[in-house]
């Protein structure tokens, strides 16, 4: 029987690790230096947060943090598919960043009340740093929503494309009832999902992007299929507990984009086992 704490930690750490890896791909490519530093710094923070969580997990799991981050097979990662999707363009990157960081904020705030001391302490540190990610994402959200036609249009399209997989950040975890009944997570992911939708719904309404959230994805419906990009398709089989398109990550069922990412992320670790800086 696996430890329910591990199930929660794998999901949290893998989201941060994979988001951090994707964001790091922007380093050196962003159109101007301040934004290059911003996305690179956020990537650095996310990977550092993954390390904090994997340090805690390491005590439960027995493997060292590097082995947990880089030594697992692709099907052992529990990140949401949203995190592994290609950056695509700046609009999609910022749309995902905004949706993800609000979701992360909702769950971290909830975990401030966790019964799991080490996690609670790590979450307190993470929240102090995530505050800047959220401010960055919100600043871009308002800026792009206020833009003339093309930028606003592309950002709206990107939000719609990212929305389905973003909902799947709230797929139930393995052992979720055990996690909640032990107080490790004080709330079910479904409650966090509602809180997140209410929060982002209000902000989307304010800027006239309410159509992004227009339909609540129900099991096995295709309503959240993105408007333009073919890259946001469901990879897992639709089933009762699958809330939306782009689900499956919490069960280790990833999209076709995961393996290329994994190959690059783990290349050094696999080529030189046990290497140290």
């Amino acid at each position: 029987m696996s430890d329910p704490r591990a199930s929660l930690l794998f999901a949290l750490a893998d989201d941060e690790l994979i988001m951090g890896h994707r964001l790091s791909e922007w380093t050196g490519w962003v159109p101007y230096i301040e934004e290059d530093l911003a996305l690179s710094s956020i990537a650095q923070d996310e990977i550092a947060h993954a390390r904090m969580l994997l340090d805690i997990l390491s005590v439960i799991d027995g493997r060292d943090p590097d082995a947990l981050a880089l030594g697992r097979a692709p099907s052992e990662y529990r990140n949401a598919i949203l995190c592994e999707l290609p950056n695509t363009d700046f609009a999609f990157t910022l749309a995902r960043h905004w949706l993800y960081d609000h979701a992360d904020d909702v769950r971290l705030r909830s975990l401030q009340e966790s019964s799991f001391k080490e996690l609670r302490e790590a979450v307190a540190v993470m929240l102090l740093e995530e505050r800047y990610h959220l401010e960055h994402a919100d600043a871009w959200f308002r800026r792009l929503a206020d833009c003339p036609v093309e930028a606003r249009h592309r950002f709206g399209e990107a939000l719609a494309a990212a929305m389905g997989p973003a909902e799947a950040l709230f797929e139930p975890l393995d052992d979720e009832s055990a996690i909640v009944s032990a107080g490790i997570a004080p709330a079910y992911t479904e409650e966090l999902h509602d809180e997140w939708r209410a929060r982002i719904g209000g902000m989307l309404d304010e800027v006239g992007f309410d159509q992004v959230l227009a339909s609540r994805a129900e099991p096995a419906t295709g309503e959240m299929v993105p408007t333009s990009s073919g890259e946001i398709e469901a990879s897992g089989e639709a089933e009762a507990r699958t809330p939306s398109v782009g689900a499956g990550g919490r069960r280790g069922e990833h999209s076709e984009h995961f393996e290329p990412l994994w190959l690059e992320m783990t290349a050094l670790y696999r080529a030189h086992p046990g290497a140290r800086w």
Partner: peptide, 13 residues
């Protein structure tokens, strides 16, 4: 503030 993100995690521009 020009940017909350500087050359190290603890610095802004």
């Amino acid at each position: 503030e020009e940017s909350a993100f500087g050359p190290t995690p603890c610095r802004t521009i």
